[in-house]
Amino acid sequence: MTRPLVKLHRARGKRYFYSKLNGCDVHPESLLERNFAIRQEFCDQVVEYACQPETAHGETGERSPDFLLEYADGTFEYIEVHREKDVDDEYREELNEFNLYFLATSQRPFRLVLDTEMCDIETDNLNFLYEYRHIGWPHKPINLPESITFGELLLMCEQQLTLPVLESKITALTLLADKHYEFNLSEDLNNDTLLRKR
C-alpha cells in the first residue's frame, strides 16, 4: 500500500507527502504548493518535478522558485505559486526580472501560477483520488464500457468481480485514479457522475 497522503512537518510547518511520480518525498512549503504538486501527479505532460529546486541570486535579491517541472518533450519550467490577493505590480515586476534571469542563465522560463487558476473542487477530487493512484491493485473488470456512471461502475465491480463492497469501491477508484476513466473534475464525484473511458 501507499504511504500516508499527508504528514505535517511540525518543526517548520511544511506539508509533505510521498510523490508517486518522483518516487520520493516532496516538501511543499504551503498547502497551496502541496495542492499544485498533487495536480502534477496527474498531469500527463509532467514526467518529474522538484520543490524548492534552487536559489537564484539576481540584482533585486534572491528567490527560490517553488517548483521545477520537467515535461515529456524534454523542456523545463520554473513555477512560483501564489495567492492572487497578494500579487501586486511590484511583485509581478520582480518575478519578470527573475524570469529574464532564468532564461539567460538556464534557458528555462519562470511562470507565476495563481490560486485562482486551480479550481478548489478539482483539487479536492485529485487529493481524494491520489490515495488510490498507482497502488498496484490486482482487480480490474473486463469489458469496461465506453461510458458509465460511478454508481454503475461500483455495482459492476461488485458483481463482475464478486468482490465485497469495500474492495469494489477501491477497484472503481483505482480505475479513476489511474485514468482508465475520466470525468468532470470541477464537479463533486458522486454515484451519478458520468465517466468516460480514455
Rank of each mutant, 00 (worst) to 15 (best):
R83V: 06
F110Y: 07
D44G: 07
S186V: 09
T60W: 04
E29L: 11
L144E: 03
V46M: 00
K140W: 01
L32R: 05
G23P: 04
K14Y: 13
P65K: 12
N191K: 14
G61A: 08
W137T: 07
L173G: 03
I135F: 01
R39P: 06
D124T: 12
L126V: 00
V26Y: 05
R12D: 01
G13E: 04
K14I: 11
L153N: 07
L154N: 10
M118F: 01
Q52F: 01
H9E: 11
R92N: 11
D192R: 14
A37W: 00
L155S: 10
M118K: 07
L112S: 11
N22H: 09
H27V: 13
L163Y: 01
H139N: 09
Q159E: 09
L103P: 02
S106V: 11
R198E: 07
N184Q: 10
Y130M: 02
L166C: 09
D73T: 03
L100F: 13
Y181H: 04
L166M: 13
R196S: 11
E29N: 13
E117H: 11
F98G: 09
K140F: 01
P28A: 06
Q52V: 02
L8Q: 12
R10Q: 14
V113P: 00
I148R: 13
A50M: 13
Q160A: 09
T123V: 02
D25P: 12
P164C: 03
F76E: 15
L175V: 03
S186K: 15
L153C: 05
I121N: 09
L173M: 03
D115N: 08
L103S: 12
E90W: 15
L173Q: 03
P65L: 02
S186R: 15
C119Q: 11
E122H: 10
E59S: 13
F98M: 12
I135Y: 05
L195H: 06
L126H: 00
F76M: 15
T105C: 12
S168M: 02
C157M: 04
E187F: 03
L100Q: 14
E158N: 08
P164L: 02
S64D: 08
S186D: 09
A177Y: 06
L112V: 10
L32D: 00
P145N: 04
E59W: 01
G136E: 02
F128N: 03
D44V: 13
C51M: 08
R92K: 14
L154R: 15
R63V: 10
Y78Q: 08
D88I: 09
E41D: 02
L68F: 05
L144W: 00
E97C: 11
Q52A: 13
T105K: 09
E80Y: 10
P141D: 01
T116N: 10
